[in-house]
Amino acid sequence: MILVTGATGTIGREVARLLAGRTSLRVLARDPGRVSVPDPAVRVVRGSYDDPSSLERALRGVRSAFLVTNDPRRDHDTAFVEAAAAAGVRQLVKLSAAAVADPAAHDLITTWQRGNEHLLEDSGLAWTMLRPRAFMSNTLSWAAGIRATGQVRALYGSSVNPCVDPRDVAEVAVRVLTEDGHTGRRYTLTGPAPLSAVEQTAELAKVLGRPLRFAELDPGQARERLLARYPADVVEALLHSAGRQRDGDKSRVEPTVEELLGRPARTFATWASDHAAAFA
């Protein structure tokens, strides 16, 4: 039995979709109505990291679990790891972040993820860490502006990041969950090339067949926009991360996706073509 958490999010949803019908699968979700998997045999357990009894129900009989957490101000990883150990789970696959390996990254989010990794390493359970760079799907936040004005506004438009297709991350997760030989490994997952926001805008323009303009935000404008969506401490973490990208700290391409999947990592052009309807 495999348990997937985060199945209403970008990666967990795809992991659950890929596993459905291939193996005995269970999903933990706060809102089961938002979970969609193409297999009626998949059991969706209502629960949360804050509810120990729901974790106990979800983890009963589970061999491996895919762990996704997203709130750096809550100790959800500890709650899940303790419940998994008590339930006899043998393997945890953790969605972490590439920045964990960068000693210069000391923002709130990276420090939290680094602590989560240490927690798993000390848990006594078999573990594998997945450390993706930025998701290509992050550009979906530009969709409203593209539709309304044909304009993309972002911070540090010329800074580059080898962003990764979430589908590649999910396929790696499925491989790790269903194969032996990945215990104790830390996999940094990137796309095939470093790209800037200006270059991504140009790729989207090609796919959409219409001109798009890029307008760079200054840090103050970016902070104001982010504060409308996130708490102040998270905003500062995101701005710190953007500054490291500006300084070139996130430009390295890793071959891990191709090594694990036996094919090249998907390009941003492919991702954009497959998701063109979201911007049209």
Score class of each variant (00 low, 15 high):
G220Q: 15
K206T: 14
L125I: 07
S241Q: 09
P219H: 14
V164C: 04
A193V: 15
W127C: 02
A228V: 07
R213W: 00
P162Q: 04
V235T: 12
S137M: 09
L227T: 13
L140P: 02
E203I: 13
V160A: 12
D168F: 07
L195P: 01
Q200C: 15
L212K: 05
R210H: 02
G243P: 11
S158L: 13
E236S: 13
R246T: 04
R175I: 01
R131F: 02
P192Q: 08
G145K: 06
P211A: 13
R223I: 09
V207P: 03
D233C: 12
C163F: 09
A170S: 11
A228R: 15
G243S: 15
Y187R: 00
P166D: 08
V160T: 15
S158C: 07
L239D: 07
L189C: 08
H240L: 10
L195H: 00
A242H: 02
A205Y: 01
P194G: 06
F135W: 10
A193C: 10
R131C: 05
R133C: 00
P132K: 02
A242P: 00
D180G: 11
L195D: 00
L125G: 06
L238T: 07
E199D: 14
V207W: 04
T139Q: 07
V176R: 02
T178E: 09
V235E: 06
Q221G: 14
S158D: 15
V152W: 01
V172A: 05
A232L: 06
E199L: 09
L125Y: 04
G209Y: 10
T201G: 08
R229F: 00
P231L: 12
D218P: 02
T188S: 05
D168I: 09
Q245C: 08
